[in-house]
Amino acid sequence: MAHHSLKATKETVHFGGFSSDLKPALTVHSGDTIAVETFSGLNIYDQAPPAFVPPEFLDICQHLAAERRVGGGPHLLTGPIWVEGAEPGDVLEVKLHSVTPRLSIGFNAIRPGWGALTERFGEGHLRFIPLDLENSTAEFPEGSGIKIPIRPFFGILGVATAGTRNSIPPGAYGGNIDNPELQAGSRLFLPVFLPGALFSIGDGHAAQGDGEVCGTAIETSMNGTIELTLRKNMPLSSPIAETPSDILTTGFAETLDDAFQAALHSMVDVLSKLTGITETEAYCLCSLAANFRITQVVNSPQKGVHGLFPRALLPPQIRLLEM
């Protein structure tokens, strides 16, 4: 298997969404690993301190071509990556070997009309937050003594679908999942919709609470090493994942009730297929041992809920690949 390096440049990133028309930034084979760079904050770079805008990011902000601006969203993504042999109906496994903040600074923003409490907090608000990478903490507000643990992850991991779509709402294709459980050591499984899969990654988060209620996390540029593997016999209709501690299912819908039901349906299906127990037994097992959390409430029009089932409760040989 080969190892690749994908730098974030104006030729290898795209802004605002996903598109089947984008020229791939890299071509890989199943099982290859990629050291990938990402930047965040293109739409606020001109308000940022110099530490947030290294020269290579400034070049992207000032010279990104119009054809690599798609979808109308606020996210800068690296990719797409073409995976040789990927076909609709396949599953793309994304293994996260490492996730590391690229800069010692991030930002948090409230945007008018965006967030969980838009009537109470209707004005725009932007703050840049230093990251203490040595101690893996971020103090917020500065001088408060409140130290937030840094738990870096990529908010967006997704594949393209036909046409063009905005980067904000997540879905069966993954995309703006914004799930802080997807730390290094996790594996995410995404349905493939187009030849080559056209996988893109970005939206680095240094820290985020479940819900992401004000609309953003500590957004920052992020580097990582990922491994992309095709799974040809793994029927899947929505993203699922395996973290170092849990089996994880996702649900996306316009209401939290519907998102929760989608995550629960997926968990029942996964547990039944993995263990051989009946769907009724899996449903009861979810009531006994699964936990469901609000992923995010701000990626309109799709809210997110994820389910977690402890891997420690399952026989040690059981893994998602055995579905």
Rank of each mutant, 00 (worst) to 15 (best):
S104T: 12
S186F: 03
E56S: 13
Q317N: 10
T9E: 07
G196E: 07
V94R: 03
S200K: 03
A8N: 11
E181M: 00
P80Q: 08
K10Y: 10
T38N: 13
P50L: 12
A262M: 13
S104E: 15
P74F: 10
L6I: 02
L77W: 10
N291I: 12
G174C: 01
A8K: 07
R319D: 10
M1N: 12
T243F: 02
G209A: 14
R165C: 09
D46K: 15
A263K: 05
G211F: 08
N43F: 11
V213T: 12
G124E: 00
H4Q: 05
P50F: 09
I110W: 01
G204I: 04
F154R: 04
R151S: 13
G89R: 07
P49A: 10
H265I: 14
F309G: 04
A48C: 11
L274M: 15
P49S: 13
F309Y: 15
P315T: 13
L314G: 10
A290L: 14
P191N: 03
L117W: 06
E56Y: 05
A65K: 15
T9C: 02
F260T: 12
T220M: 13
S167L: 03
L131M: 09
L230T: 15
L103I: 08
G71Q: 05
E181R: 01
L236K: 10
G276V: 09
G72P: 07
G251E: 08
S136C: 01
C284H: 14
T216K: 04
D258H: 09
L42R: 14
G73I: 11
L133K: 01
V13C: 05
D21K: 12
A312P: 00
D21Q: 13
I201D: 04
F292M: 13
I201Q: 08
V83R: 07
S5D: 14
Q62E: 15
E67V: 07
L320P: 03
C214T: 14
I218T: 13
A162F: 09
A241S: 11
G115I: 04
S237E: 14
N135P: 00
A206T: 08
E242T: 01
S30R: 04
A8C: 07
F140T: 06
A241V: 03
C214Q: 15
K10T: 12
L194W: 05
L236Y: 10
Q208K: 10
E181T: 00
D210G: 06
F252G: 09
M323I: 15
T280F: 07
C284P: 00
G175K: 00
G16W: 08
R69F: 02
T118E: 04
T225L: 05
I294C: 13
E139I: 02
P80S: 11
E227L: 02
L271M: 14
T118H: 01
E181G: 03
A290D: 14
T278Q: 12
F140R: 01
R102V: 04
T220D: 10
S287C: 15
P101R: 02
H4R: 09
Y45H: 14
L188Q: 06
A241R: 01
